[in-house]
Simulated scan of single mutants.
Amino acid sequence: AQDFNRLLDTILGYTAMLAQRMADQPEAAHIVEEIARASEQAAGLSRQLFTFSRGDVEGHQPLHLSTVVHDMERILERIIDTDIRYEADSPEDVWPVSADPAQVEQVLLNFMINARDALENGGTIKVRYENVTLEDGLAGLDLKPGSYVLLSVSDDGPGIDPNHLNNIFDPFFTTKEDEKAAGLGLSTVHGIMKQNHGAVLAKSAPGEGATFCAYFPRSYEEPGLGPNGEPDSPEDDFRKAA
């Protein structure tokens, strides 16, 4: 995967240089843009395959979901169409979670892309995160009782066929056109949440939109603090970065 991504980085680098030189040639610039877009999609697919096959949980650290959402807002705004409204609801005092920031980004990005594709005629996408305490776990999911932070992405599109809900997180399952998706996005999310000892589910009804939910276990450490509530040392910061 790393060798493949290095090749894609080279292609994207030269494509960016070519785009600058062809800024005054619209037709050629459009072709270069399509090459860059295809390369970015290939890089995304490579990351999803790597995450899907990986079983480790390296890179976990205490973090706030609000920080991840805020840092990704510019990217999220770029992937949604102009006729789609984006809303983020961030209540105060939401607990931190223990997760790999890159994996949280993948969960959010896949949820957003799925919601965007459902809104062919425009609509609204809402992102929300909130504290949830489950005393009896969650019916139908391998989720233990405890405290979680729920990240949800909702759309007001046409909804999902009930016959598809049970398979929505299966690898290579997709209701989209073949050239539009590989069917790995939501299965990647399922794998990530399993690695994080959380869970993911989809709620929908025809004509009532869809909501995708990811339950992250609560962290009792604050970001930037050690397990005893003391600030991380420079060695701790270096270890986390590595």
Score class of each variant (00 low, 15 high):
242 A>K: 14
35 I>H: 08
144 K>H: 13
233 S>L: 14
226 G>T: 08
224 G>V: 05
165 L>H: 08
225 L>I: 04
235 E>D: 14
188 T>A: 04
154 S>N: 06
213 C>E: 10
75 I>L: 14
60 H>Y: 10
234 P>T: 05
195 Q>T: 09
102 A>C: 01
226 G>M: 08
120 E>W: 07
190 H>P: 00
37 R>T: 12
52 F>V: 03
132 V>D: 04
178 D>G: 04
213 C>M: 12
70 H>V: 08
101 P>K: 03
78 R>E: 14
79 I>C: 11
113 I>Q: 09
88 A>C: 11
63 L>S: 02
81 D>Q: 14
98 S>N: 12
65 L>S: 00
217 P>F: 02
106 Q>R: 12
173 F>T: 04
85 R>M: 09
117 D>A: 14
11 I>H: 06
164 H>K: 11
50 F>M: 13
169 F>S: 09
145 P>M: 10
150 L>G: 02
190 H>G: 04
48 Q>G: 06
136 D>H: 15
181 A>S: 15
103 Q>G: 07
69 V>R: 05
36 A>I: 02
206 P>D: 03
100 D>A: 11
83 D>G: 05
240 K>F: 12
3 D>C: 02
6 R>D: 14
174 T>G: 06
55 G>N: 13
117 D>P: 06
51 T>N: 07
96 P>R: 03
95 W>L: 06
117 D>K: 15
210 A>R: 01
119 L>Q: 03
3 D>K: 15
72 M>A: 14
178 D>W: 08
113 I>N: 01
87 E>C: 07
22 M>S: 12
166 N>P: 01
214 A>N: 09
231 P>C: 06
60 H>E: 14
179 E>K: 10
218 R>V: 11
8 L>R: 13
99 A>F: 03
229 G>R: 10
130 E>W: 02
61 Q>E: 15
228 N>H: 12
